[in-house]
Computed example of a mutant assay.
Amino acid sequence: MSQNENNTPDIDEIQRLTDLWNSVAQQIPPTHTAAKAPILGFNLRLDVMKALQATFQTAKIAAKVVAATHTPFDPITWIGISIEVWAATQTIIAALVQKMQPIDYISYVILSQSPEGIEAGAFKEAVAAFVEEPDLTVFAPYLGMTEEKAMQAAEVIKQTSWFETATNRLQQNNMARVENGRWYFQARNFTLRGEG
């Protein structure tokens, strides 16, 4: 990560993150009928993989900014993303966090960082390294998790078969697939309609 001397991200890094956030959502035209009128005038289709990639990269920057400046990190201000995309992404993140076991959610986020797939051993190591990170509790809120959920994941990886259990659940829920020992993120899209 390129940074200036006070450990905050540089302009190029912010631009890369802004570009990533801009790829998360696609605006779709509203359907106007007598029974449906757009609320706030937006309909979005979200790419969950890109949303998780952007959220993870934002969380990495946020943790460093918070450590360097001792102030809260506001992604909308720092990155310049639209409030609609941020809010829609946070809605999806909240739904995933609520639905999934903490270790499954973290595994899903880590898997999203490898669009071309990842070997099982490297995948397991990446999840474990993330969960064992000393700043996990600082990082977790930027991923939509509470400190408690992050600590639950830290406890789970102490079990022998945690990785097999987590990846089996991801596979059963059509959130990941494995081919020739390589794990792949299952592409999913959510459509949020601002119609009432």
Rank of each mutant, 00 (worst) to 15 (best):
A120L: 08
L40V: 09
F123G: 00
L44S: 04
H70A: 06
A120F: 09
V66A: 09
A62M: 12
I39S: 10
A122C: 01
G41A: 12
E125P: 01
A63E: 08
I61L: 15
Q53N: 10
K64P: 07
G117H: 06
K124Y: 07
I110T: 02
L52Q: 01
W78P: 00
D104L: 00
W86I: 05
I81H: 03
Q113T: 06
T77S: 13
G117K: 03
Y108C: 00
I61N: 03
E119H: 09
V109A: 02
P30I: 10
S114Q: 11
H70F: 11
A122E: 11
E125I: 12
T91R: 09
G117W: 05
T69E: 14
P29F: 13
K124S: 11
F73H: 02
T91P: 02
V109D: 00
L44Q: 08
I81R: 01
Y105A: 05
S82C: 10
L111F: 08
K50Q: 15
K99A: 09
T77A: 14
Q57W: 13
D104S: 10
Y105P: 01
F56R: 07
I103Y: 02
K60I: 10
Q57Y: 14
T58N: 03
Q101E: 13
V65L: 01
L40G: 15
T91Q: 13
A87Y: 06
V109I: 04
T69P: 02
N43S: 14
P115F: 06
T91E: 10
F56V: 07
M49R: 15
K124G: 08
P38D: 08
V48I: 15
P102D: 04
I93E: 04
E116Q: 15
S112C: 06
I93A: 03
L40Y: 13
P30A: 13
I79A: 04
I118P: 05
A95T: 05
F56H: 12
W86V: 07
G117E: 05
Y108L: 03
Y108I: 00
A87E: 12
I103W: 02
P29C: 10
L52V: 01
D74W: 06
A94C: 04
V66N: 02
A62Y: 00
F73P: 05
V127P: 00
Q90L: 09
A37H: 15
A54H: 07
E116N: 14
V48M: 13
E84Y: 12
